[in-house]
């Protein structure tokens, strides 16, 4: 495998890791605040459909993005209402949201576009186009750095850069700001926040809303950047893979980046079985490669990868007690 092929593989990895990273960070905010969210999948799916639908109708991908974030926020609000205000079961609420999104997107798509539950192909300004970073062309011929910059770093849609920039930002928010301190505290021991005179409810809602925005970005990326339009169940379990990556990452932003890149690499390998054959000399079934991310998910969730301690108050509704 030559250098260029490797770069292409990594380039695909980055593109496929981006929605996982966004969803993983979304889950990180929510779970750090003590709200488990298995509805990431549903929020991404709804956001994917609404961003594609609005981008197609208006011709503007940015309006599409806003619509995607909007619907994801609505679903987050429902999850917040169920799990914070009404102290319901967070798993059931998340599951319900995912099922709702699965059915609702196809139903509305069929009603609006009559194309069997998909949106029409997005073109031009209705899609996020790759951005060529400055000097990419000029530097292209420089050995090593040139191709690295041109192939791997340059040439992605804006959302990819946003997703990667969110990693240090999230770290900074969590560990360097007042909001982050309170957010982490409310996920560990909400009573400590409450007795300190800070609203547990407000903190948890803000975390859930941030989760909504990030899921909106992830969904919009799927339908308007990675692909050109919405198709049924296009998230394909990415919300759950993001959750597995979150556990793998021990609820830390930088680890989340590496975990989602690893999953992205597996997904990229699925597209290039020839490369595997080249390197290890054995033909591997494409289906087996396709199953790899899911197998890894199961292994992680079964707790084979070290001990990950979740936020201690995670999943527990806060009831004020003396």
């Amino acid at each position: 495998m030559d250098f260029l092929t490797l770069l292409q593989l990594l380039d695909t990895t980055v593109r496929l890791a981006t929605p996982l990273l966004l969803a993983c960070l979304a889950g990180l905010y929510s779970e750090r605040a003590g709200i488990f969210d298995i509805g990431l999948e549903g929020k991404m799916l709804a956001a994917a459909f609404f961003s594609a639908a609005f981008a197609y109708s208006t011709g503007s991908v940015w309006l599409g993005l806003l619509a995607g974030i909007g619907v994801s926020l609505v679903l987050s609000g429902i999850h917040g209402l169920a799990s914070i205000t009404f102290r319901g079961n967070q798993l059931i609420s998340g599951l319900a949201i995912t099922m709702l999104a699965g059915g609702m997107t196809v139903l509305i798509a069929q009603d609006w576009f009559k194309q069997g539950g998909r949106t029409p192909q997005l073109e031009g300004a209705a899609r996020f186009e790759p951005i060529t970073l400055p000097f990419a062309e000029t530097l292209r011929e420089v050995p090593f750095i040139g191709p690295l910059y041109y192939e791997l770093i340059s040439g992605h849609p804006i959302l990819v850069y946003i997703a990667f920039a969110l990693v240090p930002l999230t770290w900074w928010i969590l560990f360097r700001t007042r909001f982050g301190l309170r957010l982490r505290a409310v996920g560990e021991n909400p009573a400590s926040v409450d007795t300190a005179g800070v609203s547990v409810v407000a903190l948890r809602y803000s975390a859930v809303m941030i989760c909504g925005v990030l899921c909106g970005l992830a969904g919009a990326y799927l339908a308007t950047a990675l692909q050109a339009g919405f198709v049924k169940d296009m998230t394909a379990g990415r919300g759950y893979i993001a959750l597995a990556a979150l556990i793998f990452a021990k609820w830390r932003p930088w680890y989340a980046l590496w975990a989602t890149l690893l999953f992205g690499l597996f997904q990229a390998l699925e597209l290039r079985p020839d490369l595997i054959q080249q390197v290890i000399g054995v033909k591997v079934q494409v289906q087996l490669l396709g199953a790899l991310p899911y197998i890894l998910t199961v292994v992680i969730l079964a707790g084979f990868v070290g001990k990950a301690i979740p936020p201690r108050a995670g999943g527990e509704p806060y009831v004020k007690e003396r």
Partner: peptide
């Protein structure tokens, strides 16, 4: 108030627990 069951965040430092809710501004440092 010092409660019978302490209201502390177990995996925070002493300082972090003390400033929680009584921070000076948006930044922690």
């Amino acid at each position: 108030m010092v409660f019978q069951h302490f209201k502390l965040v177990e995996n925070f430092t002493v300082l972090e627990n003390i400033i929680l809710g009584a921070e000076e501004g948006r930044l922690l440092r």
